[in-house]
Amino acid sequence: MTEGNFVDYVKIYVASGKGGKGSSHLHREKFIEKGGPDGGDGGRGGHVIIRGNESLWTLHHLRFQRHIKAGHGGDGGSSRSTGADGEDRYIDVPLGTVVKDKETGAFLFEITENGEEKILAKGGKGGLGNWHFRSSTNQTPRYAQPGIPGEELDIILELKVLADVGLVGFPNAGKSTLLSVLTSAKPKIGDYPFTTLKPNLGIVEYRDFKSFVIADIPGIIEGAAEGKGLGHYFLRHIERNSTLLFLIPADADDIKKEYDILLDELRRYNPEMLDKDRLIAISKCDMLDDELKAELKTQLDKDFNGLPYIFISSVAQQGLTELKDKLWQMLN
């Protein structure tokens, strides 16, 4: 999937179909001059239905479909025949898609299971034919009901990636490299900030055929919650993760300060983020000798005050098994 194909936010106008008119037909047949009313009902208008599809990972297929309309119901006919129902329109979305009302910003519902269906706009009810209005005092009613109009709605579809572990770190912290080593994902890797412009997902194979999903979120910078950099576009993808893995390089000027900035950005975006389990991975530890590592450990024990941390190196493949073990233990 190329960078441009990852679409996680679209606005769409949807309209359900209107119901068909009831018929005001009177029965006519050879030798039956004045038959009674036999007008059928109108068919219902088509619904617009959102459906979960686990084979989709992005909203790219909806990028250029800005108007989605269902079919109108058919009109009722003679001999009490009912009009055809309008054609339903299905909108397939990836799991983890949130649907909001564009006008009010109100949360409508969320799709989390494959095949899950939710009616977004209900089709209008078909009108009743004149057959329903006959009575002892009015044996030939010449009127029928019109169909009820459909519903119109402007909606926002927002995808929040479903992953167990979210990788959090500044640009250039080595998140893509770690993902490529832990999983078979092939993210774009470069030695410059903002190499990653979309969340990358990878499945970590664990022992005994177990696995979990890890998401590399594009780099957060100070002020991301206010909309600086790219972080604010992608912070919503971290909301789903049950565990957050903070990646801070060993050569950072101040590891504790970097961690505090990242944590503060998450808190400002959504305070509930701080309720998640956290693990700190000090990356690029192949640059440290034993003496420096011991010195750093003493400092980190003091700074992090019992918060779990681990030394790893993606390039030298150090500490990765311990990292998987620790993450699996936290997830379960």
Rank of each mutant, 00 (worst) to 15 (best):
G19F: 00
Q299P: 01
L300G: 05
P193K: 12
G43I: 00
T2K: 10
P146I: 02
L230H: 04
A15K: 08
G20M: 00
T183K: 08
M273H: 02
K210P: 03
G39E: 00
F170C: 08
D303H: 11
I261R: 02
H60C: 07
D264V: 00
D164K: 14
G169L: 06
G52M: 06
G166E: 05
E152L: 04
I189V: 15
G202C: 13
Y192T: 13
E272S: 10
R240M: 04
L95D: 06
N172H: 05
I312K: 08
A294M: 09
S180T: 13
I119S: 09
K160T: 12
Y259C: 04
A224N: 08
S283M: 04
E322C: 02
G166L: 06
R44Q: 07
L153S: 13
F209I: 06
G123E: 01
D216C: 04
D253I: 13
S136N: 15
I220T: 12
P146Y: 01
A163Y: 13
P218K: 07
H232L: 15
G86V: 00
S24D: 12
K284D: 05
K175Y: 08
G190D: 12
I312C: 07
G219Y: 02
E258G: 06
K297I: 08
L320R: 08
S176A: 09
D251S: 10
L120E: 04
R44L: 00
I156E: 14
P249G: 14
I261K: 09
R207E: 15
S135G: 14
G319W: 03
F304V: 05
S314K: 07
E117Q: 15
G105N: 05
L247F: 12
V315S: 15
E152M: 09
E87D: 10
D260W: 02
L262T: 04
D254P: 04
K125R: 13
L244S: 03
L178N: 13
I111F: 10
V213D: 03
D154C: 10
S16P: 12
L178S: 11
T298E: 14
G20S: 01
T183M: 11
V14D: 06
G96W: 01
G126K: 00
L296Y: 03
A84C: 05
H132W: 10
K293Q: 13
I282A: 03
P249R: 15
R207M: 14
K69I: 08
D254R: 11
R44T: 01
I119M: 05
K276E: 07
D75F: 03
K198D: 11
W131L: 07
K160P: 02
A316K: 15
I50M: 11
L179F: 02
R268N: 12
R28W: 02
I310K: 02
P187D: 09
K257W: 09
R89W: 00
E116N: 05
A224C: 11
K284Q: 12
D251L: 09
D92A: 13
V213I: 14
Q299Y: 09
H132D: 06
Y309F: 15
G43N: 01
L307C: 11
K118F: 06
N130R: 07
A294R: 11
I12D: 06
L59F: 05
D92W: 05
V98R: 13
L59Y: 04
F170G: 10
A316Q: 14
I261C: 04
K257F: 14
H72L: 00
K228T: 12
I156V: 15
L300Y: 03
K34Y: 07
G219Q: 08
